[in-house]
Design a protein around this nucleic acid. Structure first.
Lengths: 201, 201
DNA sequence: CTCCTTGCATACGGTGGCGTGTCTTAGAAG
DNA sequence: CTTCTAAGACACGCCACCGTATGCAAGGAG
């Protein structure tokens, strides 16, 4: 995942910690397979082969393939979107939407489709994604909006439920449904012509 | 599906026409399986069993499972959304968004997820969906917007690319990504507080 | 009434993934 | 140096699905 496990030191102290090199290689293999063949391509055999290990290793750490998928994809999605205070509502929203745009354009974008496509058949993945990624995004957007209200950039009675998802909804829609391009012009247009008029004081 | 095939008359004339009762039963079986188990659950064997027929029948009419899926799902999606002239931009948009909302709430909503989830691995499905459903929706929205511009309800320079997808993007996003409820209050809110201000003259 | 065409269901070999049992090897303790 | 323990690789049986070849039944032509 993120904290890169500072290789040298950690290995020196304990010979092999719980989630270490091997586990990381497995997650990487899963990610590769998702990108190449979608969630359906993530079989235990394929993962084992790709990670240069064997199936018993996988079954030792994860109950089944669904659990392995969950624990690989959800953390990835968590890291995709920046959450920084740029000092203005416009700047914050631009940063966030550009984060989504970059995510969709990157190979990791396939993770988004994989999760969405797998959720209906995997309630646990759905719960993990919604309680993890979505809930966290909502929280982050709530903070962004609260800061903007404090600054007087956004009207205090703006409907949070809608304001927080309006921008990313268009990007997700293009990415998943229409396949239309997501340009930076589109992002700035959304912010300046839709989000700010809608939320503006 | 929708038009109930007026059983008596058709059977009387030609004993068994090309796409008739059996073919319809097969499509129904595919739909059931998609709803119950997602696109991955649509195996040739399961379809044959569910439709009370056998695999050779399926292979006689469709080259492979992807073709069967395409020819079942795409027409369904085409029938989902109304395309009527209500006489006003607000009325048109309310009708369209309510059409999407009803579609998502119905069992057929699963078809939406199935298509989105399967597109990355099935270029032909993606092409069929985008050249069929999406292109047709774009055209319909273009007509709706043109009428609205003629009536003076919408500014002539409104960006079509964004205006036509803005409303449904929020609904798709809730349906696929967040799982948040899609209420009629939300629909009217989107129309009155977002679409009309954005596109208004 | 018989033949023949048409079209379906049953049955088959082949493949690939699942989940697990067994053996081997490498590191820790005595 | 020897023994013990733990972890991983190999291999197996199982099952579901694929795609096709074969045998059977029903309706039209002679």
């Amino acid at each position: 995942m993120v904290e890169a496990s500072d290789p040298g030191a950690a290995v020196a102290t304990t010979r092999r910690r719980r989630g270490s090199v091997l586990e990381q290689a497995i997650h990487a293999a899963v990610l590769d397979l998702v990108i190449e063949q979608g969630a359906a391509g993530v079989t235990m055999e394929a993962v084992a082969a790709r990670a240069a290990t064997s199936k018993p290793v996988l079954y030792r750490r994860w109950a089944d393939r669904a659990a392995l998928l969950r624990e690989t994809l959800v953390p990835l999605a968590m890291d995709a979107i920046p959450h920084t205070d740029t000092g203005s509502y416009r700047g914050d929203m631009l940063a966030i939407l550009r984060g989504w745009a970059d995510f969709f354009a990157s190979p990791h974008g396939a993770v988004g489709v994989a999760i969405v496509g797998a959720m209906p058949q995997d309630p646990e993945l759905a719960a993990a994604f919604r309680d993890g990624v979505i809930a966290w995004r909502k929280e982050a957007m709530a903070e962004t909006l609260t800061r903007a209200i404090d600054r007087g950039e956004v009207r205090p009675d703006v409907p949070f439920e809608v304001a927080r998802e309006l921008g990313q909804a268009v990007l997700w829609h293009r990415f998943l449904v229409t396949g239309d391009p997501i340009t930076d012009d589109l992002v700035t247009h959304i912010v300046d012509e839709i989000l700010i008029p809608y939320a503006g004081a």
